[in-house]
């Protein structure tokens, strides 16, 4: 048995209830005696639990934010730091080096990106076909399939009509909100797109919140709402998710010219 499948495959099959008969008996006996298997099995279970424990991570993030706010409140302007000539000397040298550094930095990074350029460099419509939730009934499923079809054909006007109907029928279908938002972006209706993405963020939907935050930031960028865009990008950057690298690149380009 162990030769045919590796430990991960066995655990996977056991977890989804696809181990039967002798295999199942063998596996359960092993779980009583085989320490490595037990450790691996526990690791699988803990990972699953961690993934769906979203509330703890939101709570942790809030605690972290409170801590940051407290630090900010406590920080005061630095006064009388330079106590002696030696320190002054080093401070002066550091400033000169900083100026030289800045000169070279700006000399080498003098490309100024407009919001429009940044947008076209980083924006692409969401491609994964996802989103039918189990609570959608058959009729809605038909509309959803049509909507996804229109969306994938880049027929965004009709996709908007269909996704809007779905959202009216069942406001909880966050996938439709996401596709609706992107369809609005594709048709240059950025303010409408913002409403869709903000809705997903308000719902704190685990599946689509990262995408919603990313596209919301791009909408702000496109509308030249620079302050909001910057805040939104910085928020994503803190999260360390799959958009982080793109966002960090944007932030570098963004901050140098504003």
């Amino acid at each position: 048995m162990e030769n045919k499948l590796n430990i991960d495959e066995l655990i996977e099959k056991y977890q989804i209830g696809e181990l039967f008969g002798d295999d199942l008996i063998w596996f359960e006996n092993e779980l009583k005696t085989n320490k490595d298997l037990v450790n691996e099995f526990n690791l699988h279970q803990m990972i699953d639990k961690a993934i769906i424990q979203e509330d703890i991570f939101i709570f942790r993030e809030r605690l972290e934010n409170i801590h940051k706010i407290m630090i900010l409140e406590k920080s005061r302007p630095i006064k009388n730091i330079i106590h002696n000539f030696k320190l002054l000397y080093f401070a002066g040298a550091a400033i000169i080096l900083l100026i030289i550094g800045c000169f070279f930095y700006f000399y080498n990074n003098n490309k100024i990106y407009t919001n429009e350029e940044l947008f076209s460099m980083y924006y692409e419509p969401y491609l994964t076909i996802a989103g039918v939730r189990s609570e959608i009934n058959d009729h809605s499923y038909k509309i959803y399939s049509d909507a996804i079809h229109k969306y994938s054909q880049k027929d965004y006007q009709n996709a908007i009509k269909l996704f809007s109907r779905l959202v009216e029928k069942n406001n909880n279908n966050t996938a439709s909100h996401l596709y609706l938002g992107i369809s609005y972006m594709e048709t240059q209706k950025f303010n409408k797109a913002i409403e869709s993405f903000q809705y997903i963020i308000e719902q704190n939907d685990l599946l689509y919140i990262q995408q919603a935050e990313w596209y919301l930031a791009l909408c702000y960028l496109s509308l030249n709402m620079n302050e909001k865009a910057l805040l939104q990008f910085e928020e994503i950057s803190k999260r360390n998710n799959c958009y982080k690298n793109k966002v960090d690149e944007i932030l570098k380009k963004y901050k140098t010219v504003r």
């Binding site: 803990m46 990972i47 699953d48 639990k49 961690a50 993934i51 769906i52 424990q53 703890i56 991570f57 942790r60 994964t128 996802a130 685990l206 599946l207 990262q210 995408q211 999260r239 360390n240 998710n241 799959c242």
Partner: peptide, 25 residues
Amino acid sequence: KYKIFKRNFDKLEDECRQILILFLK
């Protein structure tokens, strides 16, 4: 440990994150 697991989960591509969540739901 949960922090480590979640950090690695967040780094996965959208597709993987979605499929794992759907399964766990």
